[in-house]
Design a protein around this nucleic acid. Structure first.
Lengths: 333, 333
DNA sequence: TTGTACGCGTTATCAC
DNA sequence: GTGATAACGCGTACAA
């Protein structure tokens, strides 16, 4: 690989001058500038970003931590961040596969070792204290989909409790009173918060939610299938289903279809996330729209701003609310 | 940020010794080793990967170039590469947004500037010569979904011509003889190759494909909708449709649905790619399964191997064939 | 306007 | 076993 020194020799100038040319430095004669540029062109010079990062103590990469690139939710998340990164002329350094506290930690640490100043982190398993500690090590450390009071200026999050309330109220408003819940069995806060929101909304309308009507499974399509099978097998009586996420809702719909139970006429169902599939399945899935693109964009902007020395924004809280995407999986009764 | 020097001072040893400890170097006393380790722990030392890369002339990142993270096809591609990267303990350095020769070039150059030794590149707009030139600058440069004879040991690709043949033959075998084609209007090779394959298969069965039955549009869902609308408006007579990709097929199906034309009873349609949606739309889409996961995995493995000095593999060609995913969008007539 | 010299954090080659 | 010390490629004060 050809370096600044090689250029300097070939151009009969000092490395310093070459460096100035590269960085459009202030004081360098027009003809030397042209000359050096030509030589760089000829020799195919490429700046070494690592060396540059080392001396400038800056990074041109934006770190991203996420669980699974295939998941359409994370795809939307990553895509939004990438768009911001591109605008800011920074590269994406991705650490995927954060599916446990251990792997999450490793993902973040790798990014830190790369000395990225800005990073957007999706971490669900690490505890608050660890994350707070980690957040101190990069000025532009921003958490997405998580709220920690002590570093709230670094948290872009969705109000899951409110989301749970909203979806439950929506179903109730359509006349449903026999309502089952299909939720995630992951030991993280999101399902708990949403479930609490659902519970509160139901109870405010005088509707009970016995444990027999709450089924837990993995938050994927097959989990939804299993959960619905379990629900049907239990002989439970319900006309509406609140699903933890679209994937589970879709799985549940499959099972219902297999049992010749019509959606929405026999059973109504509402999902959460609003992934692309929700618009393509039949019937189209009514679901909670998760504004992940907006949130991810905000998070990336924030990370970049903080990395550049922007003061912590505390007056404002980066809380978002899901909204109802009204489609065809709920019937009025 | 705390450095190897700080540790050395605090531990009363030389930086060299600390370095040995970090890298599990050979000659260092057991108690010094423990001592240094403890201090590193205490002070929260983090190796600076940039500095390390600079001196070792190695990179711990795997470069990835792709067009669009949201696209489920690329999501599958990126996901597969990420899995390999994780196994190999390397980070993903992503350059998305390659939608023109210019942006493709920029994406690759950025990766090169980062001195990544291994990279998997999806580039459709850059010309052969440029890519060949670029490929020389990274030992582990691998192209995916593209075949260039002169660097075929770096090409993991799909035989689009054969794919076009196979899908056309499949439709013919189901009794169709009035066949329309909805293809992409992008000026890249894939649509041309597939169309050639279709044409040849059709002509071998004595079926003509007049230009009036070939409609071009953007290879997305709305492009498919537009194309089908155009086809219907033209009054063309056809019972089967060969679509360039699933997205277009889905769009076409939407238009057909709007016109009360039943799929597959009135019109049969076959897609290409086998994205996740193909299994969820109604009717489920019969399509060409693109083994992108396998191919991406192969490409990433190859990139890593070449980067580590593996000799070019030339006896073998990394050509893959799509297979038919038989579902419900084709009727026998 | 240009050149010299140092330092960024690390590894590696020598000596000791 | 351990410690100086020279790179790696680059930016930048400071001199000239």
């Amino acid at each position: 690989m050809i370096t600044i020194k090689d250029i300097a020799e070939a151009a009969n100038v000092s490395p310093a001058t070459v460096s100035r040319v590269i960085n459009d430095g202030p004081k360098v004669g027009p003809k030397t500038r042209e000359h050096v540029k030509k030589i760089m062109q000829q020799m195919g010079y490429r700046p070494n970003i690592n060396a540059r990062a080392l001396v400038t103590q800056k990074s041109t990469s934006l770190g991203v931590v996420l669980a699974e690139l295939m998941d359409p939710f994370f795809a939307a998340y990553a895509d939004s961040i990438e768009k911001i990164a591109r605008q800011a002329n920074t590269q994406l350094l991705m650490s995927a596969g954060s599916t446990s506290a251990e792997t999450e930690l490793k993902a973040i640490e790798t990014l830190l070792n790369h000395r990225v100043k800005a990073m957007v982190v999706h971490a669900k398993f690490l505890d608050d204290d660890t994350l707070i500690e980690l957040s101190k090590q990069a000025p532009g450390f921003v958490l997405i989909n998580r709220y920690i009071e002590r570093i709230k200026h670094r948290c872009v999050w969705l109000d899951n409790y409110a989301g749970g309330r909203i979806m439950a109220e929506h179903l109730i408003k359509q006349g449903h009173r026999k309502i089952a819940v299909i939720t995630s069995d992951f030991d993280i806060e999101d399902p708990k918060d949403r479930l609490n929101g659902m519970r509160d909304a139901l109870s405010e309308h005088g509707i009970e939610l016995p444990e027999s009507l709450v089924v837990r499974a993995a938050p994927y399509q097959d989990g939804g299938e299993i959960a619905m099978r379990q629900l049907l097998a239990s002989g439970a009586d319900f006309t509406g289903v609140l699903a933890y996420c679209d994937a589970m809702a879709l799985g549940a719909m499959n099972t219902l279809y297999d049992h010749d139970i019509n959606v929405p006429n026999d059973v109504s169902i509402i999902g959460f996330d609003d992934v692309m599939l929700a618009q393509f399945c039949r019937p189209k899935l009514t679901t909670m729209h998760y504004p992940i693109e907006i949130m991810a964009t905000r998070a990336a902007d924030l990370a970049l701003a903080y990395a550049q020395g922007q003061q912590p924004i505390t007056q404002d809280t980066f809380k978002y609310l899901p909204t109802i995407a009204n489609r065809n999986s709920i019937a009025r009764i």
